[in-house]
Nucleic acid binder design. Structure first.
Lengths: 104, 104
DNA sequence: ACTTACCGTAAGTCATGGCTTACGCAAGAG
DNA sequence: CTCTTGCGTAAGCCATGACTTACGGTAAGT
């Protein structure tokens, strides 16, 4: 999660949306140097969001559905509870004029 | 997205999973001071992930489904493409011994 | 009206980490 | 074998931001 905090790293990640790419390929069009991209990819890899595969002298990176799925799952965990809480909120404001039952 | 980067801030956010809470309520049980929590909530609020409502002298915070939904949507955008790319990957490795069509 | 409690804001310090330049290494081409 | 190309790693500088202490304002209770 914290791996996607940095804007540049997000852009790197977004570049991988349309399929696998080599490092120089990603760096091209980004306002940062190639080593920087390499480091970002390392972080993303450690986070389980991307995976790499050596291809001759190049190194091809691609999005790892595993880690992405885990992130999605973690987020959904909130989605349910937040919705339920918001539901309760709505009901609460419905009886606003009354609203003096019990508090804490 | 970067708002959820900090571990402490994530813990604050998680405290809101089971419904609205006041600031002191959240700070209790966390290893940081109350003002720190207040700042974290401010960041989360600016990110659209939480909303607040004054309740007497207290201030109650709760998760905002709006921002959470946006985040979910952004993540799903990857989910599809990544899956498709991964699909192509699988097919590619199927004909591994061959695999010299054209790249770049 | 005064006191108390709670919350938000400001200032200052310190740690985290992102970026660049420089270097070393591996792989393919001539 | 040598030259070239592409990638990763290390060191150093600098910016971002997280945390604490201190202060001011507002609302409730006596």
């Amino acid at each position: 999660m914290s791996a996607l905090a940095d804007p540049t790293r997000r852009r790197v990640f977004e570049r991988l949306k349309d399929g696998p790419h080599a490092v120089a390929e990603i760096a091209r069009g980004l306002p940062v140097s190639r080593p920087a991209v390499s480091q970002h990819l390392k972080v993303l890899k450690e986070a389980g969001l991307v995976a790499d595969r050596p291809e001759g002298t190049r190194r091809v990176y691609y999005i790892d559905p595993q880690g992405l799925g885990a992130l999605r799952k973690w987020l959904d965990q909130f989605w349910d509870d937040a919705l339920a809480a918001f539901q309760a909120e709505a009901e609460r404001s419905a009886k606003d004029t009354q609203g003096r039952t019990d508090e804490r």
